[in-house]
């Protein structure tokens, strides 16, 4: 970070009080409700697979696939960003939000072509998630391996 002069620091303090704060309580309530609803839908799908004879562990996979499809589809038809406007983290944190982060840049950059546009931009947000998710899981697996040697 650049070092700020005293004048800049003074301005920062002065301007800080002028900035409106996000409506935290309202946002928290919305995130809780929408996040809760999305997870409840997930639970309905999960229970459906369990009722068809899968164990809860096995049902996780198909549930994730269907949730990803729903997130992708709602993004495609232009609904997911409207949910996100009100729900904030409530629709970002669930796996449907992960799907949204893949579909939205993929659609957006179609005009830049199918290689450098759609396929490359698809991972703008999802790429980092995969990189850190897989790396941390692998590191944990390595530690687990070493501890159990």
């Amino acid at each position: 970070m650049p070092v700020l002069t005293k004048e800049q620091q003074d301005y920062k303090r002065f301007a800080k009080n002028k900035k409106p704060k996000p409506p935290l309580l309202k946002n928290m309530i919305m995130a809780f409700i929408v996040g809760g609803i999305i997870c409840t839908i997930g639970q309905i799908i999960l229970n459906f697979f369990v009722s068809r004879g899968l164990t809860p562990g096995q049902a996780g996979g198909p549930t994730a696939i269907i949730m990803v499809f729903l997130g992708s589809f709602l993004t495609g038809i232009g609904v997911y960003d409207k949910i996100g406007k009100y729900a904030g983290a409530g629709s970002i944190v669930p796996i449907t939000g992960f799907a949204n982060s893949i579909v939205s840049p993929a659609m957006e950059f179609k005009r830049e072509g199918f290689v450098f546009g759609v396929a490359a931009k698809m991972f703008v947000v999802a790429g980092p998630v995969l990189v850190y998710g897989i790396s941390s899981a692998t590191l944990i697996g390595l530690i687990y391996y070493l501890l159990n040697m």
Partner: peptide, 26 residues
């Protein structure tokens, strides 16, 4: 509903009180 909602709520608090972007939260 409650557990999923609470996890999202933590994400919302982080988003609103820090400079983290949604990608950072994920």
């Amino acid at each position: 509903f409650i557990v999923g909602g609470l996890i999202c709520l933590v994400g919302q608090i982080l988003m609103d009180t820090t400079k983290l972007f949604p990608a950072h939260i994920l």
